[in-house]
Each structure stands twice: as structure tokens, then as C-alpha cells.
Design a protein around this nucleic acid. Sequence first.
DNA 1: CTGAAAGCGCTTACAG
DNA 2: CTGAAAGCGCTTACAG
Lengths: 349, 349
Amino acid sequence: MVSDAESAPVFAKPPVTLREVAAAAGVSVATASKALNGQGRMTAETRERIRETARLLGFRPNSLAQSLLRKRSFTVGLLTNDTYGRFSLPLMAGVSDALVDKGVSVFLCNVEDDQRLGQLHVEAMLDKRVDGIIATGKRIDRHLPVDLSNLRIPVVYAFTQPDPGAVGLVSDDAGGARLAVEHFLRLGRRRIAHVTGPAGFAVVHTRAEAWRGVLKENGLTTGEPLLGAWSEGWGHEAVEKLFDKAGRGGQPDAIFCGNDQIARGVIDALRERGIRVPDDVGVIGFDNWEIVAEATRPPLTSVDMNLASLGREAGLALLSLVDGQPAAPGIRKLPCRLVVRQSCGSPPG
Amino acid sequence: MVSDAESAPVFAKPPVTLREVAAAAGVSVATASKALNGQGRMTAETRERIRETARLLGFRPNSLAQSLLRKRSFTVGLLTNDTYGRFSLPLMAGVSDALVDKGVSVFLCNVEDDQRLGQLHVEAMLDKRVDGIIATGKRIDRHLPVDLSNLRIPVVYAFTQPDPGAVGLVSDDAGGARLAVEHFLRLGRRRIAHVTGPAGFAVVHTRAEAWRGVLKENGLTTGEPLLGAWSEGWGHEAVEKLFDKAGRGGQPDAIFCGNDQIARGVIDALRERGIRVPDDVGVIGFDNWEIVAEATRPPLTSVDMNLASLGREAGLALLSLVDGQPAAPGIRKLPCRLVVRQSCGSPPG
DNA sequence: CTGAAAGCGCTTACAG
DNA sequence: CTGAAAGCGCTTACAG
């Protein structure tokens, strides 16, 4: 007995083709194509009949064939080395969301920090004729382990270091830091410390400069920012450094932290010392990593880099390049926003 | 003046085609194709000459054309509703890693919990003729907002609820829970409590049953598991419940927690009460969310669900379905592993 | 108003 | 040993 219908996999049935639609409607393939695409001239009845036939048969045009002709695949590649995904995922989701509505699909390429993997993925993207590539990473001062500088297709960099002359989108870290410090000032805080990550990160300096700048503009003196690790442990330590020296008057009444983990360590350490947050000392973090920010006691006010919007913008920027619109090269900085919770204190009175 | 070379976008130059390679090598397109694919018979010199020409011209075959012919696109769709990405990302990275070496690329489809988005993505995948689909989510007892049951292409479910009769991969939660409890027993702990998430989650019951089972097998009595939220706050509360009642003898000497956030809350609450971890009470978490597990004091022992492996397995399972290998339908449970840090205590003596 | 032809870039029988 | 032909599924000038 030959394999019977029951045992054959359901998915063996091939998709219906335009040829079948045309035959069923009694027209040529060319006419069918034009009917479905709203091209050409024909009676409204013919067009409608063909459309109805297509609908009935469940016809969906084969993208591969269309892409071959149009020289547009309606796909883009998304390169990332952020396996852990704290920064990448919202960004990737933003890209995907912005593009799905335009019929563009996104290839996920995890390149780690591995040249071989990077090359493998870029070649796969090129072979599959993606319309463009978005490169993203976990920090804006490092390159991905791939060379994207001489491709035939447009490239947009988002939250990773762009090649010179390319289009790049990053968060406005200086602006984000200003938001935090200015908020403290508005709340009446005057001795605002800054506890942040390692000197090896560009954002550490960008944010520290902004912190210093705002204080100076307001006639306040600043000490040095405290550089350390991006960790809770460092937040703890930093509190010791800040509060073990000097008298009450030299101690901060607010601490702006370089990320939420540091802020969490700071808050825990302050509580252990009996220093009240926000009454005695206000705390603001950076990243608005919700699961951390909402678990601190009190919940943490934090600067959000709007990574999903950044992803959306990157997707749209790439599309307009693909469509041949010229884009100004260079780095575009997108605004951050301050998410106010309870750790920073309320306005006086 | 017509647009000069300087101002034209670099990426306007179209890729080199097989026809050009053939012309350059002085052979027909058919011969060129066979030479590059190792098909047909021809002199070694001819083959080598064609290959060399292709290399020189930087020829890369157009995947779209190949896919059209072969009826295989070497792409798969990856559906997820885990925007936050704690579970999805390692899984997605695993899928991508397993497939990139086989020349298969992965479309990222963020469907949220939105039917419309789900449908949009599934149609896009079908139109692009993906070879198969992997569905993944943030919990194993919920469906994605899409119907994948009657597609023409194979589907594998990973870390989300499969359709009946489909192939599904999940972590062995019961096994993972056993690992934790048995480890405590080996360490000499006897009064092992269980603090976990809400009753609405299937894994809450799976893990609680396993906890209860191991204790019974060892002749130990168990109380009821403490159900609550997946949060630090609940971990805190649970410690109050466990330690405010009964005398010293009724209090646990070990707590197995349903996730790492709960475990973190538990550890913090114990410390605040002056109860030493692990000396007085051992703690084990679940998920092995490194950034949390490593920040607890002491660092947290936790059950790891091996999500990257799960992703790899899912990718390979899908590929073998695509290749026509029959796969046993049903749910396959993949083992967890215990990552031992300092919160559970050392062996006695 | 509709269809036949050519073609996107490739592969695979089939001739010679 | 090599090439001409047909074809994957579609679209788009061009005739009629």
C-alpha cells in the first residue's frame, strides 16, 4: 500500500500559486497578477472575480519570487552582541514593532563577541539579500566584531559605536543625567553626589560631565564622581566612602547613580546605616530596569533611555535609507526621560 | 550634470550574478552553477577556474533564487511574547546559535499578547516561506495568541504550551526542584520550607509536588508550600510567616524558593532578623538569573533551566522535522542543573 | 480590456 | 566534458 493520506504529514501540501488562481478564474497569470496588485486596466467585475478566487483558494503570493523581481526582500538583519539582553531586547522589540506593519521582517543575529560568528551572520544576511542591517550592542563605545563599512546595503547603528560617516542612534546620556540632577535641584537638594561605573566606559564620563555641569551652572561646588563597578556591591562601598568621612554638613543629601544596580546597593546601605531615603538622602538611578527599580525600598526613581523608541527610530531610519532617502550621517541622540518613583523625595511643601 | 560617482550611494552597485561569473570564465551559466555546487562532471581545471573566477568577483549566490527552486528558504520564524526577555533571550540565542552553522537564519517575531500582531507575524512568515516555526513564551502553561495548529510547515514549541499532538520542549521543573531539595538533604538539612509564586502558574504546583515528594520519600513531614507573588516583597513576607510562629524547633533550616527574586527577599529578610545564611538557614532559588543570584549576600545557589540548551534543542528538532524526519509528538522535558554558590551551606564536616 | 513574452537568478534533467 | 532548455513563482513592459 502506498502511503495513505492519514500518515502523510499535513504540511506536505504545497501553497497555492498564482497560476492556480489564474486557471480557476479563467484568466492568464499576468491578468491575475495585475488584478491582485491593483495594476493594469480591466473591468471591475474581472478584478473582483479574480480577487474572490484568490481569497477562496487562500492564495498568498510567494515573497521569494516577488523579492527576486523587485530586488527588495522586505527583510533586515539585526546584529547584536548582547546575549544577556537587558539593553538589546527592548531595542529589538522596538525595531520589530516598527517594521512588522510595513511588511518587513527582522533576522535575529547573535554575534556575541566572536569575529567568526559575526562574519557568518553578515554573509548569511547578504546572501539572503536583506534590504539593510541594524547593528546594536550593549554599550555605545564599542564596535561589534564585524566590519559593516563597505556593504552594498544601508546600515544603521543603534546603541553601539557607529563607523565614521554612518548613521547612528544613541541615547542622550548627558541629557538623561541633567534630568536627574535638575530634578534633585528642583526638590531642594544641594549636595548631590555621583556614584557610577568604571572609567573604561564613555558614558561614565558623559554623565559625570553633565552632573558637574548642572551643579556649576547653579553655583554649586562638586567633588569628584565616585567611579567603581556597575554593581550593588560598589553602591554599598560608595556609601561608606561618602558617609564615613566629614561631618554631617559635608555629607550628600542626594546621590545620582550611574545605574540601577548601584542605586540599589546605595539604598540598601543607607537603610542599614539608619539614613532615611528619601527624607535624608534622595537617590536616582539610571536605566530604569523595572524589575530592579520596583524592588528597591522605596521604589527607585530612574532615568529611562527609551530603548524601545530608539529601536523604532532605528528601524524607520533604515527603511528610509532603503527607500533611497538620503540621511544625514552622524550620531543622533535621542532624549531620555525621568521615571519618578519614591526614592528621590517630593517637592518641598 | 548627471549624478556623479561620488554622490551616488555606494550600495547602489548590484551584487555579481552567476551569469557574470560564467561570462568571465567563458562557460555557460549551467556549467558555472555545477562547478560551484560540486555537481556534474567536468575537468578539474575547468571547475577550479570557475571557482577562482567566482572568488575573484566576490560572487555569492542569491538565496532568494535558490530558495525558489529548492522550496527551502533556510529561514525559520521565532515567535515570542516575552518582551522583557528574561526567559526568551537565552532561548532565542540558543536557537540562533544552533541554526546559524547550518545556514539557517531566524526571524524574530514579537507578538506580545496581541492576536492581531500574532496573525500579522505568522502571515509574514508564511509569505516568506519559512521552513518552520518555533513558538516560545514566558511561561509553559499559556498559549501564544496565535493558532499554529494547521500550518503547512512544522512547528516546535519551546517553553510555551504546545498544541495537542505537537512537539514541545520544556524544562523538567520537577527534576529541577528535586535537585534543590536533595542537595539540602545531602547537606543535612531536614526542615525544608518552600516559598513560591502564585497558584495560577502550573510550575508552582509541579515544583511543590516534587518538593513534597522528595521529603516524603525521605520520611520527612512537610507543611504546606507558601504561595505568593514572584517578588522580593513576597520573599520578605514569607520569612515573617515562617519565623514569627512556633519555637526554634518548628522553624525551617532551609528554604527552597520558587524563583531568584523571592530568594533574594528571603535572604534579605533573614539577615535583617539576624538569622545567618547559610549557617542557620540555607536558601536555594530557581532560574539562576545571574545578575540577581550573584548580587545576593551570600551569593545564591539556584536551579538553572538551561534555556540556551533548550533553544538549541528546539532549533535542531525543528530542522529534523523540516528534513522530513518524523518526531515523536508530545512534550520532552529537558533536565535542569543546580548552580551551587554560597547560600545553601557546605557539607557537614 | 486581456494575454503572450521576457525576465529576476538560479538549478537540474536532458542532449550532444 | 559542456551547453541549451525548461522551470521555480511572480511582475511588467508590450502587443493586440
